[in-house]
Design a protein around this nucleic acid. Structure first.
Lengths: 243, 243
DNA sequence: CGCCAGGTTGATTTCGCTCAAGCAATGTGG
DNA sequence: CCACATTGCTTGAGCGAAATCAACCTGGCG
């Protein structure tokens, strides 16, 4: 175990990489001290589950580093990858604030370190500093927009367009755009998970990738993607070329 | 114009039917007085649009009575009915709080009366009474859960199941369950709008209704629906009966 | 070495969309 | 009052995209 003592290496919110990007940036030093005391950090290996749908929600999780997949499944065992969460993101705040059980599950996609902040701590912080609540509110508003966007897309857009959109989203964080329009992308997700993100079967994912290669839109090799012309991805988004 | 004077008949928050069911129930009398002054009421006829996607968001709307449909459309002109909103519901709070333009449009489905509360009023109330923010937060958390549920469903469930689910949701508000398992339902929506809610074409809606009648799950006549056995709707939700 | 999970490919089927027509209820203007 | 458009809904025929079923390949790992 490389972690020396208790939580010294991941336990310092004051030096946390993600500070300033999170909702916690509105906290004063004293309040941050409270967080430091009320929290527990832990490392998760890929595939390890942070919480399951239906678990009761005792607090919230903050990603210090790594990559987390948020999944939701229906009665039939069918599963969707709702989103991926990055360092600085807070998870489980909705179930916590709504007083519900967790309504989706979280799983590490890469080796990750998460801080767990105890429910009572969060409650006192919310009372102590109203700005924190507003931060969460804004966060929720954005999540909601994204979710509704996703409803719309999966109801109306064909698979190719949804996949092109996914690649464009991943580009923001994982892509490097060349001086000409060329894009180089290192996917953080397996094919299965990409399929689960756009709501299709793995087989269809394969075929879609194939068709992108056949149309010279992108070249895939493992998790490496080369897109000669980014515009071609945008072209996929508009469906119907009518006369 | 039956409205006498200014806003006297719809302008009194203190006697508003929906008071107590809304986020505003946390307000003190003085604060409620501020709302009363900072708001404007208006009646909308069916089909009339309250706001469009892309309009800038100058405040929030509260439904006093009636029924409002919240729609979102994509580039291709394709449209989805995200949800229907009822008296007591607050609309546009997310765009407002996120500081965005409206990201969906709202349209009266029945004759409705809405109160519009000016942005600056909302801001001062939020500062004045932090509990209000927490109320909105909880509301957003619930909306988010519903939206994610919808993503999951439209990605995984077949049309019949989605329609059965819609009927079960409408049952809560518009249905009467008989002493045996029989359900009587008065639909608040046109077939087109039901189609838009579950993300299918009107033709497919017709066929789905047909197939429900053929299977003796429900009988439709206009907007009146008779479901002899509510359980049959639940049965539609579980997809794969495997051995 | 053999096993297994992740990925690809092919053959077939199915579900929902498109296009097109028909129908009933409602409205409108002469 | 009737001829006529309009609108919402239904139905049919055919098509196409994605799911399903099934086989097979590949690389990692015990």
């Amino acid at each position: 175990m490389s972690v020396s003592g208790k939580s010294s290496d991941c336990g310092n919110c004051f030096t946390c990489q993600t500070r300033g990007k999170t909702e916690w940036c509105v906290l004063t030093d004293e309040e941050l001290e409270i967080v430091s005391q009320g929290k527990v950090c832990r490392e998760y290996m890929p595939g390890e589950v942070i919480f399951h749908e239906g678990d009761d929600c005792r607090g919230i999780h903050c990603i210090e580093h790594g990559l987390i997949g948020v999944r939701k499944m229906d009665a039939g065992g069918n599963e969707v990858l709702l989103r991926i969460s990055h360092p600085g993101d807070t998870m489980g705040y909705r179930s916590f604030l709504a007083g519900d059980d967790h309504n989706n599950s979280a799983e590490a996609l890469e080796p990750s370190v998460l801080c767990f902040i105890d429910g009572s701590t969060v409650h006192s912080l919310l009372e102590m500093n109203p700005a924190l609540g507003l931060r969460f509110l804004r966060h929720a508003a954005q999540d909601l927009n994204m979710a509704e966007e996703k409803v719309l897309q999966s109801a109306t857009l064909p698979v190719r367009a949804r996949f092109a959109h996914l690649l464009l989203v991943l580009k923001e964080r994982y892509g490097v755009v060349d001086d000409n329009g060329s894009l180089d992308l290192e996917l953080p997700l397996s094919r299965q998970d990409m399929a689960a993100m756009i709501g299709i079967r793995p087989e269809s994912m394969s075929r879609t990738i194939r068709s992108f290669e056949d149309d010279n839109i992108a070249r895939f090799s493992g998790r490496r993607v080369q897109v000669p012309n980014v515009k071609s991805l945008f072209d996929e988004l508009d469906v119907p070329e009518e006369l």
